[in-house]
Write a protein that binds this DNA or RNA. Structure first.
Length: 263
DNA sequence: CAGCTGTTTCCTGGTT
DNA sequence: CAACCAGGAAACAGCT
């Protein structure tokens, strides 16, 4: 899509599926309760923190943790562990993840497209996809060779830090609305699903919504009048579809990440 | 620098 | 009447 940022791998020589940066992922969605912290930091800290990664020698062959195995060779159990870990570490909303979609082997997991991740886990799917691609591209040694990983981590930290920040800053209006709908903690009854399946929702507190959007854009002059004008532009691009009711909107064909997982 | 995207701002006119 | 909806037009900001 034209709105996707350019893929920019930290490892130009490697060939693997392109990294899809999370331009649509917002801070509020994934870290609803945490004080602001760079998700990247937790990501990298994660992989340099021995607390989460017990020394490799402590693992036995038949009792290996997912970090000690390359994703392609993960068992169902490894996949499960990885998923649990991601939910835990990134405070993913487990309600939007269809866990039965992940009752699969690592090989199957690796063959899933981003779209399939989104289908299986909504917005979290994008996140999980991103994490998985990172693990894959870092390679096996990432978890085992401490010396080698250090350098890799550092490189990653820099280049991906930029992407993260860009992703966090450049959230579009419709994504902001979507994320609000998907995170009850932040929502406070501002938005409400009218028809979850159809992607129809209602703006309950229009002024509050405008205020919140204004905060996001550092614009204290934002009003619902202006915000709604921006929303109406989405009819043209298929992000939203017209609903003939006051304060009611519907996600269009070109909006993604809002769908509830279908069992 | 030019051009494009995604709004932001403003406005006229019509609807609930 | 207040709060919305429809869009056109133009300004703007960030990005390529």
């Amino acid at each position: 899509g034209p709105s996707l940022p350019h893929n920019h791998s930290p490892h130009p020589s490697a060939s693997y599926p392109p990294l899809v940066m999370l331009d649509s992922v917002t801070h509020s969605t994934f870290l609803p309760n945490a004080s602001f912290c760079d998700p990247l930091m937790s990501w990298t800290d994660l992989f340099s923190n021995e607390e989460y990664y017990p020394p490799f020698e402590h693992q036995t062959a038949c009792d290996s943790y997912w970090t000690s195995v390359h994703p392609e060779y993960w068992t169902k159990r490894h996949v499960w562990e990885w998923l649990q870990f991601c939910c835990d570490q990134y405070k993913l909303d487990t309600n939007c993840i269809s866990f039965c979609h992940f009752n699969i082997s690592g090989l199957q997991l690796c063959s899933m497209t981003q779209e399939e991740f989104v289908e299986a886990a909504g917005l979290c799917g994008e996140y999980l996809y991103f994490i998985l691609q990172n693990i894959r591209t870092q390679g096996y040694s990432f978890f085992n060779d401490a010396e080698e990983s250090k350098a890799t981590i550092k490189d990653c930290k820099l280049s991906q830090g930029c992407h993260w920040h860009m992703g966090l800053q450049s959230s579009h209006l419709w994504e902001f609305v979507r994320d609000l709908l998907l995170s009850p903690e932040e929502n406070c009854g501002i938005l409400e699903w009218e028809d979850r399946e159809q992607g129809i929702f209602r703006v309950v507190k229009s002024e509050a919504l405008a205020k919140m959007w204004g905060q996001r854009k550092k614009n204290d002059r934002m009003t619902y009048e202006k915000l709604s004008r921006a929303l109406r532009y989405y009819y043209k691009t298929g992000i939203l579809e017209r609903v003939d009711r006051r304060l009611v909107y519907k996600f269009g064909k070109n909006a993604h990440g809002w769908q509830e997982d279908k069992l």
